[in-house]
């Protein structure tokens, strides 16, 4: 696509490149998961994750080996997501609709109901709260790392995460999107039960 005008000679394939590539490959599953939470749509998410992966590869010269590559690639992915979104909000509308269809389409009777309810509840959160909660609550990032990824202050991330947690609990408690005419509070009850089951399965 864009040819370098600086005419810099391509970096020779070095041990550095190999190490970088190995680390990058290991991060692909995490990039896919983060992209999925941002877009909500598996296909759009993989496109985004691939773009981010290639951006990271192209920028490998600016990456310092030994620093936090996961946080660095997540930041690239996030920036990519928002710049694409700004470029064509119309497309992102479509993505949103696709995401909703996908979320509704999960109709596996074996699938735990609570997962769906959590996804629905997540969608009701403001974007910046959702991403902060995902990074800290699911991605395993420290507040400081999440702040770096989102380009904001650590205190801001902390307050976003805590607001997101409160809002999520309230939404689940309320169960305002009634599935199968279930009584209010069932969403939280099923999540509590499901969490117990998962904890039991893990140990």
């Amino acid at each position: 696509m864009s040819t370098s005008r600086l005419g810099a000679a391509p970096k020779p394939a070095s041990a550095d490149d190999d190490g970088f590539k190995r680390e990058l490959v290991q991060l692909i599953p995490h990039l896919r998961a983060f992209a999925r939470t941002l877009t909500g749509d598996p296909t759009a998410a993989d496109d985004l994750a691939q773009d981010a992966m290639m951006k990271a590869w192209d920028a490998r010269a600016s990456y310092q080996m030994g620093t936090n590559m996961k946080a660095w690639t997540f930041m690239i992915l996030r920036n990519q997501f928002y710049s694409e979104k700004r470029r064509s909000w119309r497309q992102s509308q479509l993505d949103q609709e696709a995401a909703e269809r996908t979320l509704v389409a999960v109709d596996d009777p074996e699938a735990p109901v609570a997962l769906d309810e959590l996804r629905q509840a997540l969608k009701t959160l403001p974007e910046e709260q959702r991403e902060a909660l995902i990074l800290v609550g699911a991605g395993g990032f420290a507040y400081e790392e999440a702040a770096e990824i989102c380009g904001c202050a650590v205190g801001t991330v902390k307050s976003r995460v805590s607001r997101a947690r409160r809002a999520l609990a309230a939404t689940l408690e309320k169960g305002g999107y009634g599935r199968d005419g279930k009584a209010a509070g069932d969403a939280m009850r099923s999540i509590l039960g499901e969490a117990d089951r998962l904890a039991g399965a893990r140990s």
Binding site: I28, L115, R165, E194
Partner: peptide, 23 residues
């Protein structure tokens, strides 16, 4: 307890994708 349960579910949701085979 509720927050803990939400945390477990959230990680589970994320890890489900992490554990998918990479295309």
């Amino acid at each position: 307890l509720r927050q803990q349960a939400i945390g477990v579910k959230l990680r589970h949701m994320f890890d489900e994708v992490v554990n998918e085979p990479v295309p």
